[in-house]
C-alpha cells in the first residue's frame, strides 16, 4: 500500500523524477487553467450573464469576502495567493471521487511546499506593507523576550499547516482503501462522501489560516486568533 503518491514514480533520472504527485498536480493545473480560460472567454459586463459566470463571480467574490472578514482590507492583493490555495486544495479533494486519482495534497511534499509558500508569503506581504523594520519589530512584540517564542511559533505553525493538511488528506484516502478491503460496498461510499466534506473543510482551513497569518504580519497589534479552526 502506498502511503503517499510520491511513491508512485513514473519516470526518474537521478534525483529528478516525475511521480504521481507532480503528474496529478499538472493535471489539476491544466484543468483549472483551461476551465478558467474557457469559462471567462465570454464574460458579460452587463446585467445579463450566464449561469457559469454567476458561479465564477460567486466563487471569486466569496473568497474575496472571506479574506476581508479576516481583516485584510485590500483583498484584491491577496486574492491570487489565498484563492489559489483554496482552489488547489479543494479541487484536489473533489477529484478524489475519480477512480485512480491520487490527491496531490495527500503527499507531505505537496503540503510542505504549500506551507513553505505560506511561510514565505507571510514575511513578503508583511514587509511589503510595513517595511522591513516594521515587520522585524513585530517579532519583538509585546517584548524582546518573546523573540524566540515568536520564531518558534513561526516555524511550528508552518509545520502544523503542512502536517494538518497532509494528515487529513492522507487519512481520508487510507480509510477508504482499508474499508474497501473490509466492507467493499456501503462504507467506502459513505467515507468517500465524508472525505469530500473533510477535503473542503481542509481547503477552507488551510487558506483561512494563511490569511490569518498574513493579516497578523500586516497588523502588528492584531494577535493571532486562538479560535482558529483546527481539526
Amino acid at each position: 500500500m502506498r502511503l503517499s503518491p510520491d511513491q508512485w514514480i513514473f519516470w526518474q533520472h537521478g534525483f529528478a523524477k516525475i511521480n504521481a504527485t507532480l503528474a496529478f498536480t499538472w493535471g489539476l493545473i491544466f484543468v483549472l487553467s483551461l476551465g478558467s480560460k474557457l469559462l471567462t472567454r465570454k464574460l458579460s459586463s452587463t446585467a445579463e450573464r450566464s449561469s457559469w459566470q454567476n458561479l465564477l463571480e460567486i466563487l471569486v467574490l466569496g473568497i474575496q469576502k472571506q479574506i476581508e472578514e479576516v481583516g485584510l482590507e485590500n483583498s484584491h492583493k491577496y486574492l491570487g495567493f489565498l484563492g489559489t490555495l483554496f482552489l488547489f486544495v479543494a479541487t484536489s479533494s473533489l477529484c478524489t471521487i475519480l477512480p485512480g486519482f491520487e490527491p496531490p495534497t495527500a503527499s507531505l511534499s505537496t503540503t510542505v511546499a504549500l506551507a513553505l509558500c505560506v511561510f514565505v508569503a507571510v514575511p513578503f506581504f508583511g514587509i511589503e506593507d510595513r517595511g522591513l523594520g516594521g515587520y522585524l519589530k513585530s517579532y519583538l512584540e509585546p517584548s524582546a523576550i518573546m523573540l524566540p517564542f515568536n520564531l518558534i511559533s513561526e516555524l511550528s505553525r508552518t509545520l502544523a499547516l503542512a502536517v494538518r493538511l497532509f494528515g487529513n488528506m492522507m487519512s481520508g484516502g487510507m480509510i477508504v482503501a482499508i474499508l474497501l478491503t473490509i466492507t467493499p460496498f456501503f462504507f467506502p461510499l459513505v467515507m468517500t462522501a465524508l472525505g469530500l466534506l473533510t477535503g473542503m473543510v481542509q481547503a477552507y482551513i488551510f487558506s483561512i489560516l494563511a490569511a490569518v497569518y498574513i493579516a497578523s504580519a500586516i497588523h502588528a497589534q492584531t494577535p493571532e486568533p486562538n479560535s482558529a479552526p483546527a481539526p
Binding site: 534525483f15 511521480n19 504527485t21 507532480l22 489539476l28 478558467s36 491570487g80 511534499s109 511546499a113 509558500c117
Partner: peptide, 18 residues
C-alpha cells in the same frame, strides 16, 4: 525535489489563476 517542484507548480498556478 517534489517539494520544490510543487512550490513552483503552485506559483505557476497562482499566476495562471490570476
Amino acid at each position: 525535489f517534489t517539494v520544490v517542484a510543487q512550490a513552483l507548480n503552485f506559483l505557476v498556478l497562482v499566476w495562471l489563476m490570476k
